[in-house]
Amino acid sequence: MRLAEYDVYFFKSHISYIFRNSVKGIDQIERVDFKFLNAHAKLQLIPVGKAINSSYYYTENRKEGLEAKNFKSVKYQNIYEGVDLHFYLDEKNQLKYDFIIEDTNSIEKIEWVIEGAKDVFLDDKNELKIATSFGFFNHQAPFTYQKNEKNRITEVISSFQQRSENIIGFNIGSFNPNLHLIIDPTISYATYYGKRITKEP
């Protein structure tokens, strides 16, 4: 997926966010990886819809670049037992993702390790703040809910949980174990307009 400030590349084991900035006419990039912990061995990464276009993903081992097709939506099916993860662009072209949980026994297994960031922390609004050299990559506090057979939505108390310095999961309050559970955060990005930050020692 290509957005104004960054690109997103999806792999079975992780998601790579590539941030771009230009300082004094020099293009700079920085990569942050979200690696899934305890993921299901049989998860499937499925693009939704038709590819819009393609771009290239570069690594130290692939100097020529790896072609990656761009979609507006992708799904990790069975990323954990009874759990799907759906990434998509909303009507404002903001990147969102939903954990769709059928087996609520898997909630505690949902966690990822964040690598490549300058800092990772939760603020007083329970927003997940991921500092890059160019700005903050923010995951807003999750909206978690259940929907019954009449499409009535019931909100469930939830929050991000920082389980170690760079490992993130969720705290979920009381819910109906007979209904699917949806965890629905939104991602935003704020630049420093050319200023750089460094992690405090």
Rank of each mutant, 00 (worst) to 15 (best):
Y57P: 03
Q44L: 01
V32N: 10
V120F: 06
I168N: 10
F121P: 08
D119K: 10
K129F: 08
A51F: 11
R2V: 12
F87L: 01
I167K: 15
L85A: 04
K92S: 11
R31E: 08
I107N: 05
Q146M: 09
D184L: 03
N78W: 00
P142K: 05
N148P: 14
I114Q: 15
Q161K: 08
G194I: 01
I182Q: 03
F134C: 08
Y56R: 13
E127C: 03
F134I: 01
P201M: 12
Q28P: 04
I52C: 05
Y57I: 05
K42H: 04
S55H: 08
G82D: 04
E5A: 13
N105Y: 04
Y57E: 13
E127M: 03
I183H: 02
K129N: 14
K125G: 03
I182G: 05
E67G: 09
S13F: 02
N93Q: 09
A41V: 06
K92Q: 12
N105A: 13
S106C: 03
L37P: 04
K63W: 00
D98E: 06
Y9A: 08
N21M: 08
I183L: 03
L128N: 05
S13M: 08
S164Q: 11
V8F: 14
K150Q: 14
S106H: 02
V32L: 10
